[in-house]
Nucleic acid binder design. Structure first.
Lengths: 209, 209, 209, 209
DNA sequence: CATGAATGAGAATTCATTCAT
DNA sequence: AATGAATGAATTCTCATTCAT
């Protein structure tokens, strides 16, 4: 019986699993090593300690994330289509990397300096991208920074929300989180976000006038 | 120099602080006890262990939260005003209970059975309330459950988002998170949410026709 | 619903129970106080600490024990009858004070100075009595000390043995430890001890000759 | 200065020492680790916790004990010789494993499920052996179970008695517990037991007739 | 007499990491 | 590259006891 994947990958995947459902601090390297079928020492060897696993997970997540964005953001399209396509791609990406996404999101507050720096850098990049996006929507340059500060987090959180509450929601609603659900989900959430943004835009323009 | 508050309150507040910025698992009872200026043993004595603090924080948070909602939800108002008033109240509440809110939100994944049950129960209650809210907006009964499942988490996450990303955002934008900011914040977020919901509504009605 | 017995008695009885089946060290005063329905502080108040309970139990046990011996040892009888009567009385006594007997016996090794002194004193007294007993059997004065050292412990252990192994034996044999059993028990054990002693006596006399 | 024995053995021996003279509950792993000159963590590592040491001691004791019995029980001999040879071997064995024997005997009451099961199993085995032994003595099959229940514990206790009371007795009698003492001890105890058994046998036969 | 909150020392255990092999 | 025994600090929790009320 052979192991699939290389040990490093296995460790990261198992760790993401555990971190996402118990929290970084409550998961021990022993458990990770055991479940990943790897010798404990390998964790130090590969990742230079437990924190290194977390960093690797977050780094890998963002790397893939930005690739997805780059691949699916088309400024040539009308902003509505552009955003919708993006949302669709992001949701798909997060369905495939659910644990990693959750780790990234729910361990955002871990304030080890090393991690903090990483997070700031990545979130910064997300905001920069978002800044470009709302320019497409015609937001007044003077307003942009504030709107990014307000709607950037809101948008990110919105897209994460299903995954975050899913374990609890599953027990409450009797919903299947399958392809069909997510098709409708992308549809409605896109509408919601777009109309929300438009509403805000309209208001800003009126107020200015 | 006398201590303010009773020790139990002090422990909960300090713990919320620490949990919110380092995560439950990485915070030790020693540190909590020391910063709260109580004997370590008191934590077991009062809360029956470290997990008891987390539970108490979450319980207290939701208790206050639902009181705010009860006090600020007025079904007699037009749904737009009703929602806006609610958002304003919730944001205000969360500004005053920032740490508790963050703990609740970011430790949602801790899956100790005891905590899990509590979370399910409270989130359930939130959804029930949300269910009533969208009825006010005229959502078709057949659609309500799905819309709650989609927009419930989205709305909650949106309202939490500023607080969640604030520590990072503070370093990126040079924004003062003061009364003025939050006034505008409530304004815009309300618009965003309302127009978002309206957009989805419009779409659903068209599709049905 | 009123409490029977006075608190001191209640504490001692409960403690004997717990000590006998878990050992002194593994039983906490909290548990004793709770089961005895007494405030924890009362233990220090009455017994001057946990060790005080143990001492009180041992003291009380021996006090009653020597009273039983005094009341049932009749040097006027032939030694065989005298010993048999005594064994019968001791077994009866231990049936009624099973827990205390077990505590005394199984906690014999606790070497807190305070307890040690007590034990030495009481065991000494038992040996002194035993010394008188074997004189009745005509043991040569020169042999007495050695025989006490050998058969004293043997006799004591023999009489305790049923009680000590009873919890285990109950699960192995399907025997009812009732009046009928103990009648036969006293019968046979008395025979065993008497014939044993006689055999040793005979041997010693022969060897001397 | 090198350590003799492997750490596991060292821990077990030291622990048996401490348990035997202070009781399982009053001995801390810290003390064991320190005296055995090993790191505290090794106790969990090797024995899976403090209780594991106790279990290991009891297991090892019985293992050796049954080996001694197997090696020294010769059913071909006349029962008297057979029993005497056995008693001699057991006493010798217990002299060499005094602490372990005491732990086994005096911690018999510890009722952790794990330990309980072990004890039941081992005591059962002792009784089974004893059952075979009294058959040799011609005990009526109908009587055997009861006699095992009565004289099994009595015999075991008798053989342990010297070791159990020795620490106290040492201070009372001025006896040297040396080879010479134990030679005589084995002699007399064998006589005592044998004549005791014979006496009981005679009585049973008479009663039956 | 009685209470129960408070204390601080100490309990067992687990932690991430290292190092000789 | 991989192992697993070993380390010692840190973990949470419980202990017997005290003291102000």
């Amino acid at each position: 019986m052979q192991e699939q994947q290389d040990p490093k990958q296995r460790i990261m995947r198992i760790a993401a699993d555990l971190f996402s459902c118990r929290g970084y601090g409550l998961v021990g390297v022993r458990e990770i090593a055991q479940k990943a079928n790897v010798n404990i020492s390998m964790i130090s060897y590969y990742f230079n300690g437990k924190m290194g696993i977390l960093r690797a997970i977050i780094e890998s997540f963002f790397e893939n994330y930005f690739e997805i964005i780059k691949a699916n953001y088309d400024p040539a399209l009308p902003p509505e289509d552009s955003l919708k396509k993006l949302i669709k791609a992001i949701i798909e990406f997060m369905r495939e990397n659910r644990e990693e996404a959750l780790v990234m999101f729910s361990q955002l507050h871990i304030d080890e300096p090393e991690i903090r720096e990483l997070k700031v850098q990545k979130v910064q990049k997300m905001f920069t991208f978002f800044h470009g996006l709302i320019r497409q929507f015609g937001v007044d340059p003077a307003q942009r920074r504030q709107q990014v500060a307000i709607f950037g987090p809101a948008l990110i959180s919105t897209l994460f929300s299903t995954f975050l509450l899913q374990p609890i929601a599953k027990g409450i609603f009797k919903i299947e989180y399958d392809d069909k659900f997510y098709d409708e989900y992308v549809n409605l959430i896109s509408l919601y976000v777009l109309d929300g943004i438009h509403g805000v835009q309209r208001y800003m323009n009126e107020r200015e006038a």
